[in-house]
């Protein structure tokens, strides 16, 4: 549990008007600088006095980072576009319905009005030991308090844990992976475009970060190609309460069928590892197969291979299996043609 203290520690605030200005500030202050998007993750850290950046670079005044634009072969969403704007945008709703469905599942209406899509995919882990300021692996220490014999780990990872067992809390991340989105990153060396699934990293690669962003880097936009326009989408999020809660597990899929057979598929889950997991083995196994119960069962079995539940999160294995099944079947009338 986070320890609430009096007020945020002092920091120097910059509100650049252009991306170039922001990049200049990030280059100038390096690891001392904290990039502020919607502030919903950041202000928790600051108010609890656990993260104490010397400099905060607030991106809210940079118009280039906001809005949804049509680009060749798809759509580009500025990183500072709010989740509500994503949910309400007509083209996004019409062609990429998976994303607004995922974005609308995040948090609460007030938070979606303030929270940005860039912030949603770049937010930090929600493990309470880590958020509580304890010196765990993710905080630079040498222990995972959640993965101890007495640790509270009901919400933690069942896949790809490496010392740290925290999970990625983003709802839009699996949807973006299913849509084969590209993350446009501005770095001191120029622009870099990476696949959404490569944007996220696990603790084995860097235990103190959730994404490939380095000090000085900035997520500028997210590009969604048109390749999956018109696919059948499925998104489902299971959480403890219906609103204002992080996913225990969520699933997102885009499926193109030919007759009753699965011709192409992209499938991702989140809440089960420190990064959203694209289920490539499942995708490979179900391509060419009919979209029925048998294929769904096969997909579910493959999806949880290698899962290692902790003391209190064994339920995530059948939960993930069932969500994968439902994504393959398109159950509950959620399949949008």
């Amino acid at each position: 549990m986070a320890v609430i203290r009096d007020v945020m520690p002092a920091f120097e605030l910059f509100q650049p008007l252009t991306i170039d200005d922001a990049m200049g500030l990030l280059a100038r202050y390096g690891a001392q600088a904290w990039v502020l998007a919607g502030g919903l993750d950041s202000f928790d850290w600051f108010a609890d006095r656990i993260k104490r950046p010397a400099v905060v670079v607030d991106l809210s005044q940079i118009k280039e980072l906001r809005g949804v634009r049509s680009v060749a072969n798809g759509l580009e969403i500025g990183a500072m576009t709010t989740l509500t704007e994503v949910v309400r945008h007509p083209i996004v709703r019409q062609n990429y319905g998976l994303l607004p469905e995922a974005a609308e599942a995040a948090a609460s209406p007030q938070i979606r009005n303030q929270g940005t899509i860039g912030g949603n995919v770049s937010q930090d882990a929600r493990c309470w030991y880590y958020r509580g300021g304890w010196p765990c692996y993710r905080a630079g220490g040498n222990i995972c308090y959640a993965d101890t014999p007495t640790g509270l780990n009901r919400e933690h990872a069942i896949l790809d844990a490496d010392r740290c067992v925290a999970v990625n809390p983003s709802d839009t991340a699996p949807a973006l992976i299913a849509l084969d989105a590209k993350m446009v990153i501005r770095t001191p060396r120029g622009e870099r475009v990476v696949n959404a699934e490569d944007y996220f990293i696990g603790p084995g690669i860097d235990i103190t970060r959730m994404t490939i962003l380095q000090p000085g880097d900035l997520l500028a936009a997210i590009r969604i190609p048109s390749a999956w326009t018109g696919a059948q989408y499925y998104f489902e999020k299971v959480r403890d309460r219906k609103v204002w809660d992080f996913a225990l597990v969520n699933v997102a899929s885009a499926i193109v069928t030919s007759g009753n057979s699965i011709e192409r598929i992209r499938l991702a889950v989140n809440g089960v590892a420190a990064h959203p997991v694209r289920l490539k083995a499942v995708e490979a196994a179900v391509v060419g197969k009919p979209r029925n119960e048998e294929t769904a069962e096969l997909a579910a079995q493959i999806a949880v291979r290698g899962a290692k539940p902790l003391q209190h999160n064994g339920y995530k294995v059948p939960l993930m299996m069932n969500l994968v099944k439902r994504a393959i079947r398109g159950a509950g009338g959620k399949v949008a043609a």
């Binding site: 490496d162 010392r163 990293i201 696990g202 084995g204 690669i205 860097d206 380095q214």
Partner: peptide, 8 residues
Amino acid sequence: GVRFAWVT
């Protein structure tokens, strides 16, 4: 800065 799953 060279990132890989090094622990194993």
